[in-house]
Design a protein around this nucleic acid. Structure first.
Length: 491
RNA sequence: GGUCGGAUGGCCGAGCGGCUAGGCAGAGGUCUGCAAAACCUUUUACACCGGUUCGAAUCCGGUUCCGACCUCCA
């Protein structure tokens, strides 16, 4: 089996990957909190980890890929202290919290499907694993590393610190955290119940008006902010599994807390490799709700956003994401999207010619080395931009051969076809055809037809103008004339 | 304030000690009824100041900017 190298946040270095059980990989990725429509930031992680999963599969591993849905427990900012995000949204929309969660889960998965991200092997919901979370909290209490206080349960960081290193993943030092805590003006709810400011909640007591609450040994409440991932990863992948992935913004406190909780409950660390992808930025800043600079995926697809003059398809978005290395920030702009779209189009046009090439007796191009580099790049910490660069080499080969400026043998042509199938489609997960259900582009086309038909009408060439209208109608598009002009719609 | 990361040509983005990254845009050419596509050629780089080295975008030190995390976040 070829060696896969990946950057492990735990060691801050690139390591050779080896699985706990030979040939099998357990992978857990933090999924979305489903309280809002999917935005651009939701897109990068799933794509990156999807490519890594596909790489593992292609290299012969059996992979169990778990990605959770968080539908409970997270609190909103200080403006809405103590109120569950889902509850808040539900109140606004006058529907059940679970209905909100379901709707956003569906739209999230719709986006994932559109981007050709494989569905997880298991997609556990936090709300469906309350018992597991309670059990895990109990074992942490039994280990003497958590305490109950006024109906809530907190993780005792100081007690844990006696025998473990809280902060080993993120490189935090407890004293620094204290220094930082003094700086934070915001007073979190229940701070006085804690023995120490850096203790974090495993279970939170719910106020009576709190809709989402469950019975527990400590009274009615809801699980803490980090316990779900620990409980669900252990349930489906075992208390020790291979890879845990997520965004860099989750490194601290979320993943740090996961390590502490799991270690407290299971006496050993949960994951061997921690993978973190970097953020998508816009004008150099990450997209965040607090900055109000997020772009919804639907807005991107439709071009319905102040920063966009037109829409871009999901395949383009996936390509755009993979043109940057996953550990670098990726700056979003219309220009960057356009460059990706054009580049992708060039690749797809070249691939189409693959079937029409007339083979030569021998090749004048080194197909093997390009494919070798392509494979090597993916094995080296998932260097997708380099692997894509090799596909541009391949496109150049194909185009040159099509122009009779180079020769490719039948064997090499087949190798290129296989590379497109195995790597471009199989691992990078890119589609060979961009389904252009793009309203902006469609509308531009329609405006041209409408204008031509208008000119025909001016010349009283009604045979032609009617022919245009009738033939469009046959294709399911209706033209409607009015004083203000002609509009169109799908009938 | 603490911790960590980054500054690459008009834009996006690789590289991390010597060898063209790549894409988009720009320029010239070939082809072409015109366009487009394609092909060939080509212009713009490594924030700044020192140091190590035969050789540095790449290593070390300093400076200046920018960002992430410390709070829900992908």
């Amino acid at each position: 089996m070829e060696a896969i190298k990946l950057y492990n946040t735990l060691s801050r270095s690139i390591e050779s990957f080896s699985s706990i059980i030979p040939g099998k990989v357990g992978m857990y990725v933090c999924g979305p909190t489903v309280y809002g429509p999917p935005h651009l930031g939701h897109v990068r992680g799933p794509i990156v980890f999807d490519v890594f999963r596909r790489l593992l599969l292609k290299k012969g591993y059996q992979v169990r890929f778990v990605r959770n849905i968080t539908d409970v427990g997270h609190l909103v900012g200080d403006a809405d202290e103590g109120e569950d995000k889902l509850q808040k949204q539900a109140r606004l929309e006058q529907i059940e919290p679970m209905e909100v969660a379901q709707a956003y889960t569906d739209s999230y998965n719709w986006v994932m499907d559109a981007m050709n991200v494989m569905r997880p092997s298991i997609e556990p919901k936090a709300s469906g694993h309350i018992i597991e979370q309670i059990e895990m909290i109990q074992s942490i209490i039994e280990a003497g590393l958590a305490y109950e206080s006024n109906g809530s349960v907190y993780f005792d960081v100081d007690a844990y610190q006696a025998n473990h290193h809280y902060g080993k993943l993120s490189g935090r030092v407890l004293d620094d955290l204290m220094a930082g805590a003094g700086n934070a003006s915001r007073e979190l709810e229940g701070q006085s119940e804690k023995r120490s400011a850096h203790d974090f909640a495993l279970w939170k007591k719910a106020s009576p008006e709190h809709i989402m609450q469950w019975s527990s040994p400590w009274g009615k409440g809801f699980p803490g902010w980090h316990i779900e991932c620990s409980a669900m990863s252990a349930k489906y992948l075992g208390s020790e599994f291979d890879i845990h992935g997520g965004g860099m913004d989750l490194l601290f406190p979320h993943h740090e807390c996961e390590i502490a909780q799991s270690t407290a409950a299971h006496k050993h660390e949960p994951a061997r490799y921690w993978m973190h992808h970097n953020m998508i930025t816009i004008n150099g800043q990450k997209m965040a709700k607090s900055l109000n600079n997020g772009i919804k995926v639907s807005e991107l697809f439709e071009g319905n956003h102040p920063l966009l003059s037109r829409g871009f398809g999901p395949n383009t978005l996936r390509f755009f994401v993979l043109q940057a290395h996953y550990r670098s920030t990726l700056d979003f702009s219309q220009d960057a999207l356009e460059a990706s779209e054009k580049g992708l189009k060039r690749l797809l046009e070249a691939f189409k010619k693959l079937d029409e090439l007339t083979p030569s007796a021998e090749s004048t191009l080194d197909v093997d080395s390009v494919i070798r580099d392509l494979n090597q790049a993916l094995l080296e910490d998932l260097n997708t931009p380099i692997s894509i660069a090799q596909f541009f080499e391949i496109a150049k080969f194909i185009n040159s051969a099509a122009d009779n400026k180079a020769k490719l043998s039948a064997v090499d042509i087949q190798k290129l076809k296989d590379a497109v199938g195995e790597y471009f489609e199989g691992i990078l997960g890119l589609q060979k055809t961009e389904q252009n259900d793009n309203h902006e582009v469609m509308d531009e086309i329609m405006q041209i037809l409408i204008q031509l038909r208008g000119e025909a009408k001016q010349e009283k060439n009604y045979a032609l103008s009617d022919a245009i209208r009738n033939r469009l109608k046959d294709k399911g598009i209706e033209l409607m004339d009015s004083k203000e002009g002609t509009t169109w719609k799908r009938s």
